[in-house]
Simulated assay, not measured.
Amino acid sequence: MPTAAHTTLATGEVRRSLWRNLLVTLLFNTLAGVFFALSSDSPTWRVMLTIQVIGFSVFAAITFTFSVIKPAPAREPWYFAAAVFIGALVGLAFNWVARVDELADVISQYPHYLAFSLFFFLLAAGVIGSILWGREKTSRMESAYHLEQAKRAEQDKLLIQSQLRMLQAQIEPHFLFNTLASVQSLIDIAPDRAKQMLGLFNDYLRASLARTRNEHSTVRQELDLLQAYLGILKIRMGERLDFSLSCPEPLLDAHLPPMLLQPLVENAVSHGLEPKVEGGTVQVTLDIDGGRLVASVIDNGLGLPEEVRGQGVGLSNVRARLATLYGSAAGLSLQSSPAGGVTARLELPLNHG
């Protein structure tokens, strides 16, 4: 179903096409009028006015046909022929009204001249009509193309939102249940830690809810979410997890699509640090490199298993969303460290808020 944006786009295209056709008609009429005025014994003003009347009559007839009547494609040639004939008749009528004092003499002495005039005006109207008809068909094709592009953009937007909800659905229930289970187990043995975890969990839910209500997110919002997320994991894993978040102040208000960093952090913890007995460190850094936003998630854990490397659900979703949002202008790369661990590097165009 066409949306209001699609309707506005289509209306704007029709209006621009109408003005373009009007200017083309005026230009062609003027050129044709000059040509025929130079090759005719009639007064220049009469020739110019007659050609202008023919051209604009054809323009009005064709515009009315395609904008109001809107015939089926199979019947368009008939309407086109009618528009040309009407334009020629109007031009003929104007021509003879303009020289009404000569009409009786010309009809009586040169009856064939009337037929020649009609043929001439039909030819002129046919040329003008053909130009306008061709432009009208081209304009409709362009309008249909732009409307289709707008629909695709709307579909891409819905796809991105669907992917975001799916990714959140994959991460949040598992994380939510584990967090609540941890809080329950800590209430009796470490109430202070349970209280701290609940506070961080409250921060996480608040940030997550705010993000789902907005189409866009910023680096600051995503880092706030990661701060709460990693803080909760830190309480659960204790000394086995350390983390740091680093970002220059001017970059905090830059746009950053949601759910790009969190899956990378989750992979680093679940596949790299949790299976490692002594745990490890996760470093999240954001910076500007060559006018692009570069985000790195670095861990010193066991690394990604071969069956997961680059093909996990979270990583696949991140790559798919990058392709949808930026095409080939953004990318995600994974690099193993000889000393252990993985660096996930995210690059995308920088867009300040």
Rank of each mutant, 00 (worst) to 15 (best):
S182R: 01
L176C: 12
M237Y: 11
H174C: 03
Q283P: 00
Q335T: 09
R309V: 08
G87S: 05
T63K: 00
R206F: 11
P2Q: 08
V294N: 00
H174A: 10
N21R: 15
V100F: 12
L158P: 09
K195L: 04
P338V: 06
S270V: 14
Q163H: 13
E274G: 03
S244V: 13
E307Q: 14
G91N: 11
D253V: 07
L225H: 02
L226S: 02
Q221C: 02
F56L: 08
W19R: 13
A330L: 04
L256N: 04
R220N: 03
Y79V: 02
L9F: 04
F59R: 01
A124E: 15
V34E: 09
L22S: 12
V53H: 03
G353Y: 05
L164D: 03
G340L: 01
L256E: 00
V277G: 05
T179F: 01
H112C: 01
W78K: 12
A144D: 15
G91A: 06
P71H: 06
E102A: 15
E148P: 09
H352G: 12
S333G: 10
Q161R: 14
H255V: 13
S316M: 12
C247F: 07
P349S: 15
V313E: 13
D101Q: 07
Y110P: 08
P77I: 12
L123P: 03
Y326K: 02
M237Q: 13
R140P: 02
M141Y: 05
G301Q: 07
T7R: 11
P305E: 13
I51Y: 00
V24L: 15
A190I: 02
T281G: 05
A344L: 08
L9D: 09
A320S: 12
L256G: 10
V106R: 13
P349L: 12
L147C: 00
W19I: 06
T343F: 01
E154G: 14
K137T: 10
E13G: 07
R140M: 14
E76K: 08
G301S: 10
G87M: 01
G126H: 04
M259A: 00
L205M: 11
P71C: 08
T212L: 12
A98I: 04
Y229H: 15
C247N: 09
D253N: 14
V47S: 12
P2G: 05
G310C: 06
R213M: 11
V277P: 02
L23W: 08
V127S: 04
Q161Y: 11
R15V: 08
F201W: 08
R321I: 04
V277A: 13
S42P: 07
L114D: 00
G87Y: 05
G129C: 07
E13K: 09
K195W: 04
L92K: 08
L346R: 12
P263C: 09
G340E: 13
P71S: 09
L186Y: 06
D242G: 07
V58W: 01
L334D: 01
L209C: 05
G340M: 02
A268F: 00
D192A: 14
H271E: 11
D203W: 05
A194W: 01
L233Y: 07
A4D: 15
F85M: 03
M48C: 08
S296K: 10
L261H: 04
S117C: 10
L18K: 03
S316T: 15
